[in-house]
Design a binder for these strands. Structure first.
Length: 114
DNA sequence: GCCTTGACGTTAG
DNA sequence: ACTAACGCCAAGG
């Protein structure tokens, strides 16, 4: 059994990710800041990595979580080009092959508080 | 238990 | 504009 605090943090991450709207993306750092951890971006990435093997009972749109520059840094964890394909399917625009137009599609988790 | 690695981000040079 | 260093800290070796 892993420690209580990290488990809670991971689960809170999943709860945010599951609410990212279709056609929108957010970043590891934005999620971390929303959860009150200023320098926890890496932990969010770790939570996403852990999700692959976690049993949390529901699916999350992991493909909508990018780094702060809009790069698909987690694409290696998807089969083939699935991450990019899913985003394109949702109408997300790219500025580079593996970089999303953040100006147009960035979603701030703090919008949940409105 | 120490060391390395890493779905990150900021700062310094 | 580009690279290096560092802070973060959980997992796995």
């Amino acid at each position: 059994m892993s420690s209580q605090s990290s488990n809670d943090f991971y689960h809170r991450v999943y709860q945010v990710v599951v609410q990212i709207p279709i056609g929108k993306v957010t970043s590891y750092g934005a999620i971390s800041r929303y959860l009150g951890v200023e320098s926890g971006a890496r932990m969010v990435g770790y939570a996403m990595n852990n999700y692959s093997s976690a049993e949390i009972g529901f699916e999350i749109p992991a493909h909508r979580v990018l780094n702060r520059l809009g790069q698909l840094t987690g694409r290696a964890h998807f089969e083939g080009d699935t991450m990019r394909e899913r985003l394109e399917q949702e109408g997300v625009e790219f500025t580079e092959e593996y970089t999303v137009n953040m100006d147009k599609h960035f979603w701030n988790p703090f919008e949940l508080d409105n």
